[in-house]
Amino acid sequence: MNYLDDAFRVKVGLAEMLKGGVIMDVTDAKQAVIAEKAGACAVMALERVPADIRKEGGVARMAAISKIREIMATTSIPVMAKVRIGHFAEARVLEALEVDYIDESEVLTPADEEHHVWKRDFKVPFVCGCRNLGEALRRIAEGAAMIRTKGEAGSGNIVEAVRHMRTIIREMKQLTVLAQDEIMAEAKRLQAPLELVEYVHQNGKLPVPNFSAGGIATPADAALARLLGAEAIFVGSGIFKSSDPEKRAKAIVKANTHYNDPKAVLEASEELGDAMPGLDVRQIPESDLLQTRGW
């Protein structure tokens, strides 16, 4: 894959524009308005926020088209929407609908346990989740133009987002100090294409932006994700499952921009009401984990 290819650069270009921002999960137009007014740089349209998917169970699919249309008609910022892992027909529908970005997401029930969507076939850009460098590079090889670490969506617990961001950043650093004759073995260990492993070896970063998701519930969580190396953040249940979504949305936007200024994060953290209820990830049965979906 040629990373200087114009079609791919246009996909990565939109991800570049979203850097430094907050992408918020919304389930209807009313929430999209709250997100845009708070300063979100994009919204993610989905049927139910991850905390509800976790609680209610059943099969989680692409959102209803009428809801996505309603959100697209209401907001002037980019609209993303989720498809099930491997469900390229849902992806084709969203491309026909002209959403701005597709998230092939572990939050929805996977449609294919073996294959992810071959994203290079699409003109619309894709973002995919990862837990480590190998997974990120496999998704990029398939055509993803943005990567987000998975965390554990709907948990309100930042611990997995931290684990995944630390892992990928550490693996990238380690690659940069290897000798040329060690790269092939590293590609084998990472189970990732050699050319992408070489890219990270030479540049110390992914060829696409690297965002954080899955468990951000407070302004300090947002700052932590950015301080660990995330270039922007996705917030799902953390806003609309809190006691005062409008206030919390603004506070997270503020803390995300001024993540390196503790006084600004302090100010954003004042008088916020209650955060969403959180889950101890160690208490979640293995079969209920979302992050293990996809590979």
Binding site: E16, A40, I77
Partner: peptide
């Protein structure tokens, strides 16, 4: 820079 103008306006205001 490039980005979302609505987002920048909000942050300029804050």
């Amino acid at each position: 820079p490039g980005g979302e103008s609505t987002s920048m306006l909000k942050l300029m205001d804050y």
